[in-house]
Amino acid sequence: MSGPALEHERRSTPPIAATRSRRRSPRTGNVLAFVILAALLVPWLGVARFLLQATGGAPLLPSLVASLLVTGAGLLVAIPVAWLAAALVFEYPTTLAARMTKWVVDLLAGIPTLLFGAVAAAIFLRMSPSLKSVPFGALILAVFPAGFSLLPRLFRAFLRAFARVPGTYREAALSLGASRAHTLIAVVAKSARRDLVAGVFVAAAHGFGELGPVLFLGVDAAPLPLRVLAAGLGKDRGAAAAASLVLVVGMLTFQLLAALAQRPTADRGGLVSLFLEPRS
């Protein structure tokens, strides 16, 4: 019996079991972690309190519509590009094109979204300065920056959705004689359909409230993030809280839709998954 004990004494770090008797209390770590976690969550209570101070201000429906239009059109631009990129990286991960694509999407995720808006403004407004005065002209301008800022998130969501399809489906399709194109489109993408849709909704939830892509439209423009900014610059607390509240509710709605769209597994799916661990 003394052999192992002596060996423990010689080691600089004792094995885990040896320290059991020395620890303070089994709950200390738990309590500490919970306190720190609470420190992370408590500021959001402050945000909630701020949101509930919403009063007055101009009607927000046109702003909501404008924000939805920009996000929707941005998604229309970004989804095909992100799908093709994800398909390439999933199907031919070792090729130069796939590696380059993956590297660039990661790079894209790091570029501040403000720059996309600035570049779009500089290019399009130079070409046609009157575009901003046309109805919806400004929104058309915002579509490309919004789409670009959505791209990395969509790409990763699509790639994860493809990867979640069991590999046996692919093997079965290929062994039945289907081509790779047929396998990807009719088997993998079809099985991943719900996760793909969920990814789109999650991207929409993130893109819906982004200020960067629409900032160049100016403080007077319609989209919701700009209304928050305008109210803030005008020191109008109630209006800022109102626009923020609409933004947060919209974000939560998109997240809810994403949770509903997610592919259910044996033990979870639908609304219940809202209260379980997120899978992506």
């Binding site: 945000v47 409230g209 661990e277």
Partner: peptide, 30 residues
């Protein structure tokens, strides 16, 4: 964390990442 709390907590943390930054800015300012 206790098993029952892990899922909801992870969901909350993931949700808080999609709160628009301008809302955080307005909260910090006001």
């Amino acid at each position: 964390g206790p098993r029952a709390l892990r899922g909801p907590m992870a969901r909350l943390v993931a949700l808080s990442s999609s709160v628009p930054a301008i809302v955080i800015g307005a909260f910090a300012y006001f």
